[in-house]
Simulated scan of single mutants.
Amino acid sequence: MARYRVLFGLWLAIWLVLWALGKNAMPLCVLLGSLVAAIAELACTALAAKHLRLSLSAPLSVQKGEEVSVCVQVENTGLFSLATLSAQVCCRNLLTDERSCRALRISAPGRQRQSEVVTFAGLRCGKLELTLPELRVYDLFGLYGRRVAENVRTFSLVLPKLYPVQLQTGERTIPDFDSDEYSMRHPGDDPSETFALREYVPGDRVRSIHWKLTEKTGDVIVRQLGLPVDHSILLLLDNSAPEACTPADKESLGELTASVSAALCAAGLTHHIAWYDRNQDAVSSVPVEGEDTLTPALAELLAARIVPDEQTVLEHFAQCGGSLDYAHVVLLTLRPEQEPIPEGESGPLFTVVPCGAAVSREEGVYLAL
Rank of each mutant, 00 (worst) to 15 (best):
V165F: 04
S261N: 06
C44S: 11
G126P: 02
G22F: 02
V220A: 10
L237T: 00
V260F: 03
E66K: 04
I221C: 03
S107A: 11
Q114I: 11
S61K: 06
F80H: 13
D204H: 02
D190W: 03
K127F: 14
L52W: 02
S208N: 15
A83T: 15
V220P: 01
E339T: 11
A327Y: 02
G321H: 00
L104I: 09
L85F: 04
N76P: 02
Q280L: 13
E67P: 15
A357K: 13
G218A: 03
E300K: 05
S360G: 07
G364A: 06
L369Y: 10
P164C: 05
V152C: 08
Q338N: 13
L79F: 10
R105K: 11
L10D: 10
V206G: 11
T217V: 09
Q88S: 14
Q73A: 10
F141Y: 09
Y366S: 13
Y276S: 03
E67D: 12
E339L: 12
S57A: 07
L104N: 01
P109W: 01
A327S: 14
H316Q: 06
V165A: 06
V118D: 10
G321P: 00
E116A: 10
E171R: 09
S261W: 02
L31F: 07
R113K: 11
P187V: 00
G9W: 07
P109M: 02
E363G: 13
R3N: 13
G226Q: 01
D180G: 14
Y4S: 12
P59W: 00
E67L: 08
V286A: 03
I174S: 12
V220N: 02
K161V: 15
A48G: 06
G78W: 00
C71H: 09
N239D: 14
L130K: 00
A357R: 08
G145Q: 04
R185N: 07
Q166I: 13
L294M: 09
L301G: 03
D238N: 07
P336S: 08
A297H: 01
L334F: 08
L298H: 03
T154D: 06
Y200H: 10
W11G: 07
E171Q: 08
L140D: 13
Y182I: 00
L123K: 02
Q166Y: 11
L157E: 04
G364E: 03
T312G: 06
V201D: 14
N93M: 09
G226Y: 00
A40Y: 08
E181A: 08
R172F: 13
A38N: 08
M184H: 09
L331H: 07
L135N: 00
V30M: 01
L157D: 02
R102D: 14
S115C: 11
Q112C: 15
Y163L: 09
M26Y: 08
I233V: 12
R278M: 09
S179C: 14
S34N: 04
A241M: 07
P228D: 04
S179K: 12
L162Y: 12
P133A: 03
F141C: 05
L369G: 08
M184C: 13
N93S: 11
D190S: 04
T351H: 06
A43K: 10
R3Y: 11
D97L: 07
S179A: 11
V220L: 12
C71K: 09
C71T: 15
E345F: 10
D277I: 03
S61V: 08
